[in-house]
Design a protein around this nucleic acid. Sequence first.
RNA 1: GCGGGCGUCGCCAAGUGGUUAAGGCAGCGGCUUGUGGCGCCGCUAUUCGGGGGUUCGAAUCCCCUCGCUCGCCCCA
Length: 424
Amino acid sequence: MINLKNLRGMVDLLPAQSHSWQKVESIALEHFSRAGLQEIRTPIIEQTELFSRSIGENTDVVGKEMYNFEDRGGRSCTLRPEGTASVARSIVQHGLLNNGPQRLWYQGPMFRYERPQAGRQRQFHQIGVEFVGLASVMSEAEVISIAWDFLNDVGLNDLTLELNSLGSNEDRNVFKEELKNWLNQRFDLLDEDSQKRIKVNPLRILDSKNNSTKELLTEAPSLSDFLSDESKTRFDYLQELLDNLDIPYKINNNLVRGLDYYSHTAFEITSDHLGSQATVCGGGRYDSLIGELGGPETASIGWAIGMERLIILAGDNILNTKSPDFYVIHRGEKAEKIALNISRKLRKANLRIDLDYSGSSFSKQFKRADKSRAKWAIVIGDDEVSKGQLLIKKLRDNAEGERSEEYIFLRDGLDKLAEKLIDK
RNA sequence: GCGGGCGUCGCCAAGUGGUUAAGGCAGCGGCUUGUGGCGCCGCUAUUCGGGGGUUCGAAUCCCCUCGCUCGCCCCA
């Protein structure tokens, strides 16, 4: 027997879960459209170069986590590991900035070749927001508050917003040199990983989880001391704006983030209930990315939320199964035709209808009707057909503990039925 | 990429070398071819993630492989 299974780290979204996703997606859409954002959809495959240029050659994502392949034309292709690079590419390619700043959202699958674990898959889904062409601190507060309010509305509380400023590129370069020198003087005291990182990505050492390295780093120079006055002013003002919005945050000077394109504001929203993959939302300002991709220098900020992690956290808060309004029970050939017909009419009137397809005994059909958690049953059998009626029956007790039944004449017209039933 | 745990029906599981692989839930059928939510009865794994090996004999032991899971790394 052939035994086909999903690829490692690739996950099926089963019917029991899919409505949770739909719910979250609809809440997201609601939030985004209220805030005046527009959706952008880009391909999930791009030229490899797009990611290596924008995310950074020396990042883990580019270095070891990308799904690369050559297509039949010999082009080097990559399954997107994140959304921002594609959005930026699309904006530049189509000259969208000629229409002014772009406030966009996107959603879809991303791919990273990593070892799966709780809250981490090889194909996962992100929903993200990008404000491109906006430099103001105000736009940062807005972007952050969209994420915060959305997550709260989905039912997540207990979240922590962590905030840092990476400063301008110049600030950071000066600091990087300073840090390198300091680290090199203490090279032997560092763990192996950190030793390797000094050359390629010294900033990430600040985020090290190694205990002795952590200890050592308490003495290290801090990026916050290298911020220019302008950078500092920006960061202070952002905090003021968040205070004003009553959005709580925690300053984390070691928050660096793994993608090269960030500058100034960087933030993450984390939870204690996710195991070691604690970040639900990550984002920051990326003022040099658009320029890097051949567009004009363009200040930008955005974030991405991991859908799977969000769903884990939301748990049962969002699980309200949609039960049908009516379950249509029928028996006999004529009844079958009427059942099919009336179901269609009722659906056109925006009602949720479950139709029994089995033609088995009324007893069985009632059992299924009950199980479907429908509010009402519509019964069409020989009697109804001969009298030109339908029976509608309430499937749950009313206040008096009885289940009302009522006959409705078909000759009144199916179109009117929907109207009549809605009132029940 | 590295280290630990796990894998028996759709779900939860018993079973640790010996004739037919417990049980519960769900599903299907019946008691009741026109009235459900309770109850009772019956049916549903030639097979133990997959492949190979050891053995007279394997779900049980060995090897390989796939998947899940937890931690590291990293991120959403």
